[in-house]
Every structure is written in structure tokens, then in C-alpha cells.
Amino acid sequence: MSIQHFRVALIPFFAAFCLPVFAHPETLVKVKDAEDQLGARVGYIELDLNSGKILESFRPEERFPMMSTFKVLLCGAVLSRVDAGQEQLGRRIHYSQNDLVEYSPVTEKHLTDGMTVRELCSAAITMSDNTAANLLLTTIGGPKELTAFLHNMGDHVTRLDRWEPELNEAIPNDERDTTMPAAMATTLRKLLTGELLTLASRQQLIDWMEADKVAGPLLRSALPAGWFIADKSGAGERGSRGIIAALGPDGKPSRIVVIYTTGSQATMDERNRQIAEIGASLIKHW
């Protein structure tokens, strides 16, 4: 067993022997301040990774656009098919120029040779490549099948209805392509620590998230040296922004954090800054 596999296998073990965790309302004060600064709703939840206990939450059962955070769930569904012998990570998928959609920095470079399922998941999570996500959605049967996968996990809230990039439209009061912070946090925890996926697939999923290259201005910008984070960000229309993450000190994750916002007129930089400040408060009061 590799060191990384050992780390993920012992996530519940280490967490069980940690000192009790206590909620700190100071972080919620910052979440509410972010709402004021952005002029928009902000949803927040913080779960203990081992027990699933909610440590703090704000608007945990209000719907927010998922945006690209759905790509972690998508690759979880792909990995479940791999575990069941219905898919192979090494299978190569070929596609054409007509398949390319807006923001496809990886797939646009491989029109000639195609990409493997493993490479597509890596591109979808680490670079948020939209064509990679659409190609992977095709392998599982489309958005409705991802929703069905989530329902089978016990998540009857999260739903995907459309493809990239239309799913980022974020129309107010439109339930399409949305989740709730509580539902997303619980589902992410199941994917990373539950028995739904094999140990190898859980490790692969967290490795992809740990290698995320496009979430630097968010929670990662607030992390002290030595902290662990595996995350996936999302951005959408109407001032929408979000991030889902597993993080913790001492090089291992111990909490799940989900943050979503929508309806702001603020710039992307300002949305990023507010999420980073929430992260800084979380870490300060850990």
C-alpha cells in the first residue's frame, strides 16, 4: 500500500482519535458579512469528516447552483462504474471539434489522439474542462443518470439537468442544476469515506481534487503551510461562485467545507476574496 493510499485508508482512524471539535460562531459572522459585502445569498456548511456531524452552517438547506462543483460527483459516478466493471479508466475516447464547448483548455489539445477516461476526469476536476465533463456525462448516460446515481446514494436534493455550459445559467428560483450545502457536503463525505467506492477509487477521487489547479484564489489562499486540501470550485452566471473541499491540518483532511453564493453584482475577484476570507476565519478558529 502506498503512503497516499495509507493516508486515505486511515482518515477515519486518525479522526477518531482527534480531540473533540467545537464550532466557532466567528466564522458564521464572516459568512454573514460576506453576504453584506456581496449583496447576495451565501450558503455555508462545515462537517466533521469522521462523524458527519454538522459543526457550523448557514442557509444549509437553500438551493444554490452547483456550477462546476458537480464534476466531482460526476467522476465519482464514473469511478463507481469502474468498480462495477462497467468502465475502464484506460479506455480512450475520441471526439471532434464539434464536441468542444466553451472553456476546454485540455480537451482542445487532444482532438487528434483523444483522451482516456482517467485523463478526462483529471481534466474535468483539476482544470474544470467543460468538454471533458460533457464527454464523461455521455459515458454514464447524461445528466439524468448522474441525478439517479445521487438518488441511489441517498441524495434526493442534488440534481443535474443540463450539460456544460448551460448548467451554469443560475436563474433565480430555478431548481435545475442545483444542490443544497448540506446535501453536497453529505454526498461528498460519502464519496470520500464511505463504502460506495473502493479504496482505490476513493484515493483516485481525492487525488484529482488535491491536484486542483484553478481554485488557488479561494480556500487555498488562506491555508497555512502543512495543511491538506482537496477541492473543486465552480463559477456561473449572475454572480455565482462555489467551492467544495476536504481539508485539515497535519497533512490530512478532517472536515468537509461547502460554500456557495449566487445573485451578486460583485466582480469575480471580490467573490473570490470573500470566500478566501471565510476560509481564513475557519482556519483561525479551527
Score class of each variant (00 low, 15 high):
Thr69Lys: 02
His24Asn: 08
Ala77Val: 05
His285Lys: 05
Glu164Leu: 14
Thr147Asp: 15
Phe70Lys: 02
Ile244Met: 12
Asp129Val: 12
Asn134Arg: 04
Gly52Met: 01
Asp161Glu: 06
Asp250Gln: 02
Trp286Val: 12
Asp231Thr: 08
Asp207Ile: 05
Glu62Ala: 14
Glu175Arg: 04
Ala225Val: 04
Asn130Glu: 00
Glu164Ile: 14
Ala123Cys: 00
Trp208Gly: 05
Met67Asp: 13
Glu61Cys: 09
Ala185Met: 06
Cys75Phe: 07
Leu199Glu: 08
Ser281His: 15
Asp36Pro: 02
Ala222Tyr: 15
Asp174Pro: 12
His151Arg: 09
Ser68Arg: 08
Gly114Ser: 12
Ile259Ala: 09
Leu47Ala: 01
Arg273Ile: 15
Asp207Ala: 02
Trp286Gly: 10
Lys190Ala: 14
Gly114Gln: 05
Gly234Trp: 11
Gly236Asp: 12
Arg81Asp: 07
Asp207Phe: 08
Glu35Ile: 02
Ile275Met: 06
Arg41Gln: 15
Met209Gly: 10
Leu146Asn: 08
Asp36Ala: 03
Gly279Lys: 15
Glu237Arg: 13
Gly52Gln: 03
Tyr95Asp: 03
Leu160Ile: 06
Arg91Phe: 03
Gln97Glu: 05
Ser240Met: 02
Ala182Trp: 12
Val214Gln: 03
Val157Asn: 08
Val42Arg: 00
Ala182Phe: 10
Leu28Ala: 08
Lys213Val: 02
Asp177Phe: 05
Ala123Tyr: 00
Asp83Met: 08
Thr267Met: 02
Gly142Leu: 14
Asn152Ile: 12
Thr179Cys: 05
Ala211Lys: 00
Ala40Met: 07
Leu219Ala: 11
Pro105Thr: 10
Leu89Gln: 00
Val82Trp: 10
Thr267Cys: 13
Thr158Asn: 14
Ala200Ile: 02
Gly239Thr: 09
Pro25Lys: 05
Ser264Trp: 06
Ala123Thr: 00
Ile283Lys: 11
Thr126Gln: 00
Arg63Leu: 09
Asp174His: 07
Gly216Thr: 07
His110Asp: 14
Ile93Gly: 12
Ala183Trp: 09
Leu38Asp: 03
Phe70Met: 04
Arg63Thr: 11
Ala280Leu: 01
Ser240Gln: 08
Glu210Thr: 13
Asp231Trp: 09
Gly263Lys: 00
Phe228Gly: 13
Thr69His: 03
Arg255Lys: 09
Gly242Thr: 05
Val78Trp: 08
Phe58Asn: 13
Asn134Gln: 03
Glu277Phe: 13
Leu120Asp: 12
Glu237Trp: 08
Ala84Gly: 07
Asp99Asn: 15
Ala200Cys: 02
Gly226Ser: 06
Glu237Lys: 07
Met66Val: 08
Gly43Trp: 06
Glu169Asp: 02
Pro105Asp: 07
Ile244Trp: 11
Pro25Arg: 09
Glu277Ala: 14
Asp269Arg: 06
Ala40Lys: 03
Lys190Glu: 13
